[in-house]
């Protein structure tokens, strides 16, 4: 990422709604994330923060609203002709109207290669070695030569401090090591955006630090990230923006100093008083 990109909108989320059956988990989310920034999403269980994260790479489809990453809609294509016709015929308000057409699976998969996702439970492939886990997507999704992908995988392993574990199987590693491999696997696609879904929640307390250190390191290098977490200290130290969600809505957002130290909403105050 060059400095010229900094401050551009990387993720734009507009009026996103999502229900599972009768349960509405996202009730109109608007959020903007700028290039090079770290956004930390906090909130109680069931507040919809993980679902929101999963809509950004289309693991969940939205029911209404839209999400764009680096200028292109996630999972859909806007019908330009209809939009243009309505915009000229009915005036400015119609500009958002028209239809969104679902992209083919191939197109969705291509979009996903630009968005790295790190799961709470790592989801490493247990039957592949650490090195094969990292090189799999570059080889099969980006069609990189296998040798290049393996070389790059080794460099990424070195970067997360696990150069000596290339030939190990995931189950032979500690939870913290597995999550660091999962981060390296996400980085192997050279994504524009990294999404972390509670990356340390499945870890023993003494292993949390090593994973957060890797994420901090990425933040310092200007990686655009959205991190769903319960680690308030991490949010305070690394986040550019802290977002607090509850019951499918964003209750408040702002600089960590504001949201964490001087929350304006009672719900945020109540949550922080319990976790701090």
């Amino acid at each position: 990422m060059s400095d010229a990109d900094a401050g551009r909108t990387m993720v734009d989320i507009k009026a996103v709604h999502k229900s599972f059956g009768t349960l509405e988990v996202l009730r109109g989310i608007d959020l903007e994330v700028r290039t090079g920034e770290v956004t930390v999403v906090l909130g109680p269980s069931g507040s919809g923060k993980s679902t929101l994260l999963r809509t950004i790479n289309h693991l969940e489809k939205v029911d209404s609203g839209w999400i764009s990453v680096d200028g292109s809609l996630v999972g859909y294509r806007r019908d330009n002709r209809a939009t243009a016709r309505r915009a000229s015929g009915k005036g400015g308000g119609g500009g958002r109207a028209g239809k969104l057409y679902e992209l083919s699976e191939r197109e969705v998969l291509k979009q996903r290669t630009q968005i790295g996702f790190v799961f709470q439970n790592f989801n490493l492939f247990p039957h592949l070695t650490v090195l094969e886990n990292i090189a799999e997507a570059p080889v099969s999704a980006l069609k990189r030569p296998r040798k290049d992908a393996l070389d790059r995988a080794r460099r990424l392993l070195d970067r997360v401090g696990l150069a000596d574990k290339a030939g190990a199987y995931p189950k032979q590693l500690s939870g913290g090591q597995q999550q660091r491999v999962a981060i390296a696997r996400a980085l192997a696609l050279e994504p524009k955006l990294l999404l972390f879904d509670e990356p340390t929640s499945a870890l023993d307390p003494e292993l949390v630090g090593e994973v957060l250190d890797v994420i901090k390191d990425l933040a310092l290098q200007g990686t655009t990230m959205i991190v769903v977490t319960h680690e308030i200290g991490f949010a305070r130290e690394v986040a550019d923006t802290v977002v607090f969600m509850d019951e499918g809505r964003i209750v408040e957002q702002g600089a960590p100093g504001d949201v964490l130290d001087a929350p304006r909403h009672d719900r945020t105050k109540a949550f922080l008083s319990k976790v701090l």
């Binding site: 790479n57 693991l59 699976e105 191939r106 998969l109 291509k110 996903r112 290669t113 968005i115 790295g116 996702f117 799961f119 439970n121 989801n123 490493l124 492939f125 799999e136 997507a137 099969s140 999704a141 980006l142 696997r185 996400a186 696609l189």
Partner: peptide, 17 residues
């Protein structure tokens, strides 16, 4: 595990792969 399929989807692996 369902998470295996999601991880493969998130990495952009094709359906056949």
């Amino acid at each position: 595990d369902r998470g295996q399929i999601e991880a493969a989807q998130a990495l952009g692996l094709s359906r056949l792969r």
